[in-house]
Amino acid sequence: MNIFRFAGDMTHLISILVLLLKIYATKTCSGISLKTQELYALVFVTRYLDLFTDFISVYNTVMKLVFIGSTLAIVWCMRLHRVVRRSYNRELDTFRHYFLVAGCFALALVLHEKFTFQEVFWAFSIYLEAVAILPQLVLLQRSGNVDNLTGQYIFFLGYLTFSVLILLSCSSQPTEMPFWAYRAFYILNWIYRYFTEQHFSRWIACISGLIQTALYADFFYYYFLSWKNNATLKLPA
């Protein structure tokens, strides 16, 4: 465990808890894509199949349970909670995410570390996480503006490219120091482990992580601009 990874896990945890708290406290989920949340729940369920077969550490097991539990709680809230579900933008959240699931599964059948049940599902979860944000980005584009917390939620999930830029630009107001990006730490962690561990090669996770970053980069650019100009975020249609 290195500081990059720990910070990445904490940022990821905060982003999920912030979203869950926002939905639960305000009893509204407008601007949030249920499809993206369902994809994230699928990512965690398929990635942590080794939850009961491989014990790595208490930290590892607890975090897996928290990630699975909190994302399922978000999906439950948005689908079944009688008050929250009314504010779900069903007519805007129309991304056909089944294609993402099918595509990632097909890719995982071809590209994996080892052709076993667990490894194919692990690779599937890595690919799916890279594209899971797409329904949310499409929903943001359709709903036009970003309500404050949704934007911040995606911001917390964000990546090196613009988080460093935003960090540098707002270093003047330390109170606004945003939580670092989650995947940014993981990319730093992979670089760190590549140089410190002989047999460390996680090409599947690395490349998928970089694609994930690219997907976020454009969102961050517009988020940064709106934040800088203090205007509501308008993504180009």
């Binding site: 080794d50 077969t53 491989d54 897996k64 692990w122």
Partner: peptide, 10 residues
């Protein structure tokens, strides 16, 4: 792990 590869990262 069971199938030889252990993913220690979350």
């Amino acid at each position: 792990s069971s199938n030889g590869i252990s993913h220690d990262e979350l």
